[in-house]
Amino acid sequence: MDLWDIFDKEWVPVGAWVEQFLNWVVSNFRFIFQAIKVPFDFVLSGLEDTLTGAPDLVMLAVITLVAWQAGGRRLGLISASCMLAIGLMGAWEESMTTLSIVLTCVVFCSIIGIPLGVVAAKRDRFWYVLQPFLDLMQTIPSFVYLVPIVMLFSIGNVSGVIVTFIYALPPVVRLTNLGIRQVRPDMVEAARAFGASKRQTLYKVELPLAMPTIMAGVNQTIMMALSMVVVSSMISVTGLGQMVLRGIGRLDMGLATVGGLGIVFLAVVIDRVSQSFGISARDRGHKKWYETGPIGFLRSKILKN
């Protein structure tokens, strides 16, 4: 062998190892992964049945009202027109499926990501260990783990949620960690000085003060989940992504465009609504949430009578 071309030979057969390992896991531990699917399946099918099962106009009204409540009248109007556009283009059913996948993903990313972020903010060593995993999850091309996911979890919408979950989890962990670390130390010290326990300090001072940053993380997670819609449609996840994929496959530009526009409109709505959840009370003029939006409107009507 020529010493100059030493790397012509594959010295470390990583590919073969991974394949063997994966086959071994699939044949011995598939039941574990099927069990992991259960909670995802539960939340997803519940959401999907509700969103697609409800009459279209009712859903349109609900989304408009939620947007109005979250971000004021202007956001209500923007959301109504975006959703109306989706409906008129004939992508309503698909957009509801995509919405339910994204929401499921957000639920699990928050449930798992926020506590991880809190622990990471409290323990430096945990944070150092966690960081490379988050980097890996964010940077490894999603096509790479698409196949193993299919082998372990099979195809379908639930697997789509899991793929999306892996990709979208890091921002919420990172920003929760950052948010908690950025709380002014004298705020925490004051809480301790008045006799608060660690838990009380976390819930009454640190989490509320970190909330705008945490919500920015949730918003990022949502955006990343949306960007996975088309990729995950390759493992036969239905919804807007599938429209795009099918359009590309058949060179049907019309169908692809409708799907693409649908994703854009849906993204605008979800992004704006989730961003306005993160606005601090100070910037809302110190009004309680029930004093604004449609609920505030109703409340003032009722209180007047």
Partner: peptide, 12 residues
């Protein structure tokens, strides 16, 4: 009871 230099009142 403790009073702090930069007040350290909780803004929320």
């Amino acid at each position: 009871g403790m009073v702090f230099q930069h007040m350290a009142l909780w803004p929320h």
